[in-house]
Nucleic acid binder design. Structure first.
Lengths: 216, 216
DNA sequence: TTTTATTAACGAAAATTTTCTTTAAAAGAA
DNA sequence: TTCTTTTAAAGAAAATTTTCGTTAATAAAA
């Protein structure tokens, strides 16, 4: 019954990981303003969060702050970027070049955070063979052949929900180790694959719900 | 007597809200396969989650399941869509028509989930006056004037990080009540505004981190 | 040099979320 | 009908995450 009773010991908490890029964005601004040090209290005040949460989050990295001074901005940026994996470029395939997939191909922000989409796959004959933002679109059937040469291990899933599980399974067979799942479907895969769910609609749902409480 | 009337005044937990659209996607597939009922145990097994979590999540809506049968698919879809605010169309402005903003304009998935972008604002003279996916792009300065006529209350924030706080403040002044923040910056605003952070890079960070543990 | 104020780090406590357990209801079988 | 099995619901327990309180370090001031 208990299928995934894996020890979570030593893992950096997901909420902490999600907050780290926000500190990074803040630090880059501080750097632009030529600040050499920032204290956790400063960060916390400016960002509207708890100061102890900032120190605790940053303590997961190798940075050490100086008492009464704070953290040195530039080393902290470097350490955070390294820690988050934004410094090493990982190659990725995009599966499903519909409107959302297209969107991700056009967004050049991703490459600054360590993700480079090297090819896209789809089944729509109208777009296969074309390029979007310099990324070639192949037929889904060509994936396994392509993967033999390239050995990419990240797959971005932007197919229609009904194909999510099937495609996910298929690409894991081809050696994909991490799936960035933009579909609203939950996909079931083995323990040796990382699935990151990023459904925009989930966030929309939270926003709509919280807004209801304002309207009275 | 409601047991969860504590400090947060009975707010639906955010994790539950985020999971609801995944149930919705699952249910739509069940409907397509002409299933009339689904039980929480079924949903849980197919989606790889805990069955009691499913019932608990669904209990926040008005649906009531039938013992030994489950939930009726079609009413549950309707109730969920209604509950999540996907049935009523909310108008939104897009702030920042760069690559990510462009992406959101091109994605026609949003309109199916109750969000309709009616105008975009930017400061780039090269794109002002043009249209993307039928949505006109205006200069940022025209926002307040426009808002007087339209009274839109959702703003999608896809400006560069360094302008996030400033623009956020400005649009709240113009009457925006909910901000869907796609920048990695945390923004500070009053209590009467809902901010939903959706930084893609936060999710990327989690995925990269979790993948590190596979590679050994 | 000594004192004071600010800060990171660490562990404890509180709050939140998830999982486990029990209970009652009801469909289907005997 | 009566029994068995499956299920939703509700409450308890466990795990996780956040907040709180304390301590030690150290830069700046006296």
């Amino acid at each position: 019954m208990s299928t995934d009773n894996k020890k979570k010991e030593g893992l950096v908490p997901e909420p902490s990981l999600r907050r780290m890029p926000t500190y990074l964005a803040y630090l880059k601004m501080a750097k632009n303003q030529n600040q050499q040090f920032v204290s956790s209290t400063h960060i916390a005040r400016d960002m509207g969060v708890d100061p102890t949460q900032v120190t605790k989050d940053l303590s997961y990295t190798s940075i050490v702050g100086k008492t009464r001074v704070g953290y040195e901005v530039e080393p902290l940026i470097n350490i955070l970027e390294e820690f988050l994996g934004f410094r090493t470029i990982d190659e990725a395939y995009l599966f499903g070049a519909g409107s959302l997939g297209n969107a991700l191909l056009l967004d050049h922000g991703l490459s600054q955070f360590g993700l480079k989409i090297v090819a896209a796959f789809d089944v729509d004959a109208n777009i296969i063979g074309k390029e979007i933002a310099g990324v070639p679109i192949y037929h889904m059937d060509d994936f396994h052949k392509m993967q033999e040469e390239k050995q990419v291990n990240i797959g971005i899933l932007t197919v229609p929900s009904e194909y999510a599980q099937k495609v996910a399974h298929d690409i894991v067979d081809g050696g994909i180790k991490g799936i960035w799942n933009f579909t609203p479907m939950r996909i079931r895969l083995g323990e040796d694959v990382v699935v990151q769910d990023t459904s925009l609609y989930a966030h929309l749902a939270v926003m709509f719900n919280r807004m209801q409480y304002l309207k009275k």
